[in-house]
């Protein structure tokens, strides 16, 4: 498949936004259980939510560049019953609204408990809205992953690993950003987020390596024989019906050399997994804002490369019809 940068940016940026929100809400839950001190409402929760919404909005903005007719984008919410793309289109703005509401509740200090469950768990509006937003964030990860995993003949994508990859990679980048954010505020949560970021990054690496292994051993189900229905082991394309450029040649081929694809894979394995873990471990020892910030920047670049490889790795069966031009 041809890697479209609009989609690469969309999926990586919203992954960061979802992960960052989940990180912020996690610290509220930890504080509620008195495992962590409650962070500052206005500075930590409100500003963190604003940054998360910023990433989600940037992702949404990038997605418009993928559309031929962006002015009609509102129509894409229509078929949520059958289309995972439609579900994503609904869930992304829904999550943005919930995260804005979550940030606003903290900013305006509407955090008086509404009721107390069993005398131990004070439930305030931010807890309820945050729980809804958490559901939306997980649902959005599933919807984004299913857009790819539901295309059954793109066999590199049609696996539950695709959904786990989106979930874990987005979560890892969000928690890494949360570590940098906490270091910037000096809120003392850097190690907490750093630990989770390392756990998620290692889990994401395991899941991604599993999908790389799976895809390297996939046997194509469709062949030139089944594509044109001729039973002979030696079939050679002579022409593909057009000498000039076609949509089928642009959209489904990445055009990069095998060596370039290998290089991208090596780069993303280092930049998305190895280097961030090393930097986050360093952040344990040295309390500097720049180390977790660098970890996030490197990991994000790594995820962009990872997403590029994700597209380049997928071999569309239609390519069987487009092997030779003349």
């Amino acid at each position: 498949m041809h890697p479209a940068f609009s989609v690469i940016l969309l999926t990586t940026l919203i992954g960061v936004g979802q992960g960052l929100f989940l990180a912020i809400y996690t610290s509220q839950l930890y504080a509620l259980a008195r495992l962590l001190p409650m962070p500052d409402h206005q500075r930590f929760f409100a500003l963190g939510s604003a940054i998360a919404v910023g990433f989600l909005a940037l992702g949404l903005f990038a997605s418009f560049f993928h559309l031929g007719r962006p002015g009609r984008a509102w129509r894409s919410a229509a078929r949520w019953r059958t289309s995972w793309l439609s579900r994503e289109v609904i869930l992304l703005p829904a999550l943005m609204v919930l995260v804005v509401a979550y940030g606003a509740i903290h900013y305006f200090g509407w955090t008086e408990p509404l009721f107390v469950v069993r005398g131990a768990l004070p439930v305030d509006p931010s807890l309820i809205v945050g729980a809804l937003a958490t559901l939306a964030a997980f649902a959005l990860f599933v919807a984004t992953g299913m857009i790819y995993a539901s295309l059954r003949f793109l066999r590199e994508w049609a696996t539950p690993l695709t959904i786990f990859n989106f979930l874990l990679l987005g979560g890892a980048s969000g928690f890494t950003l949360a570590a940098a954010f906490a270091a910037w505020l000096g809120s003392g949560l850097t190690r907490f987020y750093g630990t989770w970021a390392v756990i998620l990054t290692v889990a994401a690496a395991a899941s991604r390596l599993a999908s790389l292994y799976r895809n390297a051993h996939l046997q194509p189900k469709s062949t030139l024989q089944s594509a044109i229905g001729v039973r002979h082991p030696r079939i050679r394309q002579v022409t593909q019906g057009a000498m000039g450029p076609t949509f089928n040649n642009r959209e489904f081929f990445h055009g990069a050399s095998a060596k370039a694809v290998q290089t991208v894979r090596t780069f993303f394995l280092l930049a998305a997994f190895v280097i961030p873990v090393v930097l986050l471990a360093t952040a344990y020892v040295l309390s500097s804002f720049w180390i977790p910030a660098a970890a996030f920047a490197v990991q994000y670049l790594g995820l962009v490369a990872e997403r590029w490889y994700f597209f380049a790795d997928a071999r569309h069966p239609q390519n069987l019809y487009y092997q030779r031009v003349a």
Binding site: G68, P70, F247, N248, P317, Q318, Y321
Partner: peptide
């Protein structure tokens, strides 16, 4: 008149039967 040109249907067709019109962007 309803197509937004997201090309997702062309990804979902194993035969490569769909082509995006570069002029109308649908």
């Amino acid at each position: 008149d309803k197509c937004i040109g997201c090309k997702y249907c062309s990804w979902a067709c194993p035969y490569g039967a769909r082509e995006l019109d570069e002029h109308q962007k649908v």
